[in-house]
């Protein structure tokens, strides 16, 4: 049975685009351009098909107002000052002997994992190596590479990449991001982060089932 190279490549590329979008959502405060894209016709249609409700004001308020509100919410949820939901794996994972502090055992594990694949951290990147958006971006990079390999009809490399994705998902993303997202769901004041957190959980579940 021949492989539909294009189909598997598209599948990887699709997964890549979702990882990419979620990276954008959790990396920093959404820009006006991103908000415009999210409420543009193609995505809003897809969102309503899956009952992902971002609320009327997200769609109707001036984009600068929405950006301002989301920036506040982003700070409130993920940065502080004061108690917040620190979006780092080491905070969310209890490790023997470690107490879930910033730059914990898990941070180092993630960093080493990523560095073993040949990627390094950009010098101007000021976040921690196990920030949620870093882990999502890493998956984005892996799926991109996987898609390329399928297109090159290099099954061995593509499947090898898939095995690494599985490993990273199981060892890292799946161990904490659902927990983190559930915390966001309870704390978020606007629908945007609540729904995005739910989408993230759902997507990771799907990943778990299909990989």
């Amino acid at each position: 049975m021949g492989t539909d190279w294009n189909r598997v490549a598209v599948n990887a590329e699709s997964r890549r685009s979702i990882y990419g979008m979620l990276t954008l959502v959790f990396r920093e405060e959404p820009s006006e351009a991103l908000i415009n894209e999210l409420r543009g016709p193609r995505l809003s249609g897809a969102f309503s098909e899956i009952d992902l409700e971002l609320g009327d004001s997200f769609y109707n308020d001036p984009v600068s107002t929405v950006a301002d509100q989301l920036a506040l919410e982003f700070s409130h949820l993920f940065i502080g000052p004061g108690p917040h939901i620190s979006p780092h794996e080491s905070i969310f994972t209890e490790v023997d002997g470690g107490s879930g502090e910033l730059w914990g055992t898990k941070t180092v594990e993630v960093k080493k994992f990523i560095e073993t694949t040949g990627l390094g951290y950009a010098s101007r990147f000021t976040g921690l190596p196990d920030h949620i958006s870093v882990e999502l971006e890493f998956m984005e990079k892996l799926t991109e590479w996987e898609a390329e390999k399928w297109m090159e009809m290099d099954r061995i490399s593509a499947e090898y990449c898939l095995s690494i994705q599985r490993m990273f998902l199981q060892q890292h993303l799946l161990t904490w991001i659902p927990k983190f997202c559930n915390a966001v769901i309870t704390q978020a004041a606007t629908p945007f982060y609540r729904e995005m957190a739910e989408l993230t959980i759902n997507f990771l579940e799907l990943e778990q089932q299909s990989l």
Binding site: S14, I18, L34, A46, F47, I50
Partner: peptide, 9 residues
């Protein structure tokens, strides 16, 4: 469906 959209974003 979602990927088509998010791909754009």
């Amino acid at each position: 469906k979602l990927t088509a959209g998010s791909g754009c974003a």
